[in-house]
């Protein structure tokens, strides 16, 4: 139940003091300002706050206990050992976590991209090599033709 009203009645402030004590920090957020405003204007309400403060101070006097140092280790040691995952399950779990690890999603895109680039470069290099060989072969065949032609001319020119 939320109380959004900006003005509160003295009875409500008395309820707040009775329930939450004297410290406004513990009062419901939505009523805090109005309650503090009202408190400034009323001496009886300020007296009520002082009464509540006495009990608050006694409650503050109760020391905070501390757990044993080994409790953390005890809790973690009691965790059940996770079963060994099959490769498929591991991948599924790994992918299942990607929402919290952006790098996993990036990896998913980058790995095929890199493979594509490497493959592409290899194919391009191979094509270039092929073209060079074809050029050389073409040069060779032209040279051969010229040599052959020269040989024929030479034969014809013989007496």
């Amino acid at each position: 139940m939320k109380r959004e009203s900006r003005i509160i009645e003295p009875t409500r402030l008395i309820q707040l003091l009775a329930s939450y004590g004297a410290n406004p920090k513990r009062w419901p957020k939505e009523e805090r300002k109005a309650a503090q405003q009202l408190l400034k204007t009323s001496t009886p309400l300020q007296n009520q706050q002082q009464q509540a403060l006495k009990l608050d101070r006694l409650l503050d006097a109760v020391s905070a206990p501390k757990p044993a140092l080994e409790l953390r280790a005890r809790i973690l040691a009691r965790l059940p050992v996770p079963p060994t995952l099959e490769a498929g399950e591991w991948i599924a779990q790994w992918l299942g976590n990607w929402q919290f690890s952006n790098w996993r999603m990036a990896t998913l895109f980058l790995v095929p991209l890199c493979l594509g680039i490497v493959l592409g470069l290899s194919v391009a290099g191979y094509s270039q090599y092929n073209l060079e060989i074809q050029d050389e072969l073409a040069d060779l065949s032209v040279q051969d033709e010229v040599t052959l032609l020269a040989f024929i001319i030479n034969l014809e020119s013989l007496p």
Partner: peptide, 23 residues
């Protein structure tokens, strides 16, 4: 969310954070 995926490190962090207040 990580604990739901079986992340023990996340669980240990949660324990560190809430052990004393809960105790």
């Amino acid at each position: 969310y990580k604990i739901q995926q079986g992340d023990e490190q996340a669980f240990a962090t949660l324990v560190d954070r809430h052990l004393t207040p809960l105790y």
